[in-house]
Amino acid sequence: MKTIFKRPEALAETPTHYCPGCTHGVAHRLIAEVLDELGLRERTVGIVPVGCSVLAFNYFNFDCQEASHGRAPAVATGIKRGRPDLIVFTYQGDGDLASIGMAEIVHAANRGEKFTAVFINNAVYGMTGGQMAPTTMPGQVTTTCPAGRDVEQVGYPIRMCELLASLRTPGFVERVAVHQPKYIIKAKRALKKAFQYQADNRCFSFVECLSTCPTNWGLTPLKAVQWVDETMIPYYPVKNFKSPETEGEGDAD
């Protein structure tokens, strides 16, 4: 009998602790499928973050390092510079990457570090219980902006892909979503490209995944999917922002 669906080898046989309707599991699985398909699992090191996915090293079936909050890109830089033969990826949420770790991700991207950064954007701090993130939507209610995000006070949500794509250094930058099958298929394609660029020793690669957090959004899983469609995607366009092939387009110099 032909096997048409199985657990990827790069995913451990362990139940995850994620909430119902959370898309971390989807993102984990896509990474695992891509590493299996590219045959990279045995030389991969994943950098797991501080946040809901802090225990991801239990869910992946390859070597992992646990980074401190925000520093995954620096940890990845250390590994990749010291051992360029390894395949290294970071996995960070929005508070981790776009708030406390802003310096590390921008400089790693700007140096063109040849690792893959996976950015899970669900517009909220998850593990600490739903506080405002740099990516929280205008008017979105969180535990630290109970009246909704006031852009007069704290500015607008940061668009990381747009910010990183503005850097002159070549790279691959794409925003995807992992809340619905049609987006998930494209997300996998983007992740595969990202890891392929790394395997080819080509460039820094960055994939932002628009994700759900029903628990901290106070929505049912179905309503959360709808919220991504109606609130996040209009502000965070799902598309490719930069790739080595299109390098130089639109540059003033």
Binding site: I47, Q65, A67, S68, A74, A76, G78, I79, R81, R83
Partner: peptide, 11 residues
Amino acid sequence: NMLYGAAGAGV
């Protein structure tokens, strides 16, 4: 943190 990463990879 680069040191953490590199040392963790045995370098």
